[in-house]
Simulated assay, not measured.
Amino acid sequence: MKKNNPKFRIGDTVVVTIYGTVGKITNIKQLDGEFLYEVNESEGLFKEYCLVLLEDYEGHIFEQEQIDIEYHFLFGDLVKVKGYEQDLFKVVGFRTEIWRYKDDAWEDVIYELMRIHDGEWLEADEDELTLIADSEQADAYIQKYGFVFATPKPKAQNLLSSPVKHKGSWVDRQLDLYNDYKTLHRMFKDTKYKKKMQTILEQLKNYSETKSKIREKE
């Protein structure tokens, strides 16, 4: 039998029992008669059995950690990469990997890059990058000095031996993310998923424009 009313209300302080963390209900959605709860405006949704009101919880509560990450490079910045000193790269994405162990903890910022003269996709750690021009000056810099760095594309074996990690298609990954957010938007009609879809489309547009400029120069 489908319930007409949710067990929790927006603003309730609850414990996410699978993590032992505390948060507030910030949104409630319904799918196939089942209520799903957003906690602390996170993208994930929890079923009712995963949540307990704080005053009713008898288990152990873990303290939530506040992590402040400072990004030294942003979308569109032009950089050089250790091991590829003759090439220019543009920042097209970045992510943070959080590592926690019993006696140690750290965060790694990984930047996703596109090589200017051939569109090769690479990723590198923050300490492997040197800023050449910020996003506002990047295109002007490439037009003025880019030809100096227009070296032939390295062979596959050189890429594999480089300290920079080399992965598959960045475009494919973005399209997968777009389809995921499209499905979530269709299910829940939440505007935040629509905004994420638009952000991905903008990134793909910028990528396509950069590739077109590269072809025009060849």
Rank of each mutant, 00 (worst) to 15 (best):
P152D: 15
W106S: 14
I110T: 11
E70V: 10
H60I: 13
G23P: 00
E97R: 12
L122A: 04
V109A: 05
E112W: 02
I28S: 01
F35Q: 03
Y193W: 09
E128V: 12
Y145R: 09
H72S: 11
G20P: 02
G76Y: 05
F46G: 04
L113W: 02
E136C: 08
H117V: 09
K102T: 15
E216T: 03
Q143F: 09
G146N: 01
D77M: 07
D180H: 11
H166F: 06
K217E: 10
K153F: 13
V91Y: 01
L74V: 05
V171T: 12
Y101P: 00
P154I: 08
K7G: 03
E202W: 15
V22F: 03
S42L: 11
E38N: 08
I214F: 04
H60V: 13
F147V: 08
E55G: 12
L159H: 05
V79N: 08
Y57D: 01
Q137E: 13
D127N: 15
R100Y: 07
I132S: 04
F149D: 02
K182R: 14
K189I: 08
S212C: 07
L54Q: 06
L36H: 04
N40H: 06
K2Q: 05
E34R: 01
V39S: 00
Q174D: 07
G59Q: 04
L31H: 10
E85I: 08
K80P: 01
D103F: 13
E38F: 07
L45V: 14
E48K: 00
E126S: 11
A133Q: 05
E97D: 15
K192N: 09
T210Q: 12
Y111W: 10
G59I: 06
Y141A: 07
E55V: 06
W121P: 14
R215K: 11
T96D: 11
Y178K: 07
L51Q: 01
K213H: 09
V39Q: 01
I98P: 00
G83L: 07
K211F: 09
K192S: 12
G168F: 10
E123S: 13
I67G: 03
E136Y: 13
L36Y: 04
K29I: 10
V91E: 01
V109T: 15
K82W: 07
K192T: 09
I10W: 03
D32H: 13
E136L: 14
K82E: 15
N206F: 07
V81A: 13
L201R: 11
G44W: 05
N5K: 13
E209T: 05
T210S: 12
Q203V: 15
E112A: 04
F147E: 14
